[in-house]
Amino acid sequence: MKFTTTWKRLRLAAASLMTASLLVGATSLSVAAATKLNAEGLIIPQRQNWSFAGVFGRYDRAQLQRGFKVFHDVCSQCHAASHLTFRELSEPGGPEFTKAQVKALAATYKIKDGPNDQGEMFTRPGKPSDPWPWTFPNDESAKSALGAVPPDMSLLAKARTVEYGFPYFLAEGLPFFEDEEQGPDYIYALIKQGYMDPPKGMKVPSGLYYNAVIQGSNHLIKMPSPLAMMFDSAGKPNDPKFYTDGTPITEDQVARDVSAFLMWAAEPKLEQRKRMGFNVLVFLGVFATLLYLVKRKVWAGVHDAPPSV
């Protein structure tokens, strides 16, 4: 009798919990579905599904290789990636190009080196150990050509974030809700959703572009839409065979792939970290359980009678 009432109560509690979470889920979904502007005309980037999210998250090699192609053909024309080396492209846990591919790729770049034994600087083909070379010799030259220094891309995915505010940020630290992917969420939203026509009556100065993901200063950004360089205004790709692995090229696909690639560039040890982390948690969990059992054994009876010491 007593058991059945407890069971009923439990079921009631579970049902109300589920209803509550469904409601919360529905509200957050409706927020997500509306990639719409908030009161300040700002798009708050939404959480995307990433293969590298979660305890068992791993990068999608094919996606990283596609993202690398976007980075190589488009982004790196202007952006630097000074912390990224060629060799990392063939290391485990990344796009995992073959060593030969990376060697051939590096050799297509001319690297300034020296001085040699005559005291002269010289150029040589790139080697896998070289850092990613930049189009511009220095910041000043980038600024004079582009009007601003584009941010270095190697850490961009960790240097950008989405502030969800109190109390949501607390959940981002909890198991099952954890979120270290705000950077790629932000980059995806910036290039896929942010570029749009400015509000009526607003004049965008030449050399600037309207992007609703950019905070402050009237949502203006100096980077022209990178997708507009690859697609026409109707969303048709300039090069339908851009991806060599047969993946159809769409604006959404390009934005996702390059965001994932930038996350890897910023956090190349993510897979190693998560794999080791799981093992560490399992070990510590077993160890803690054993210690607890020993502790119980040691303390057994201690509070029943005066200790015999």
Partner: peptide, 21 residues
């Protein structure tokens, strides 16, 4: 266990994104 959770799964939770600039 609590410590390891943050180190391995949300290592930048307590940090600030701007410090990667």
């Amino acid at each position: 266990i609590f410590f390891a959770w943050f180190v391995f799964f949300v290592p930048n939770f307590f940090g600030h994104a701007d410090n990667y600039n």
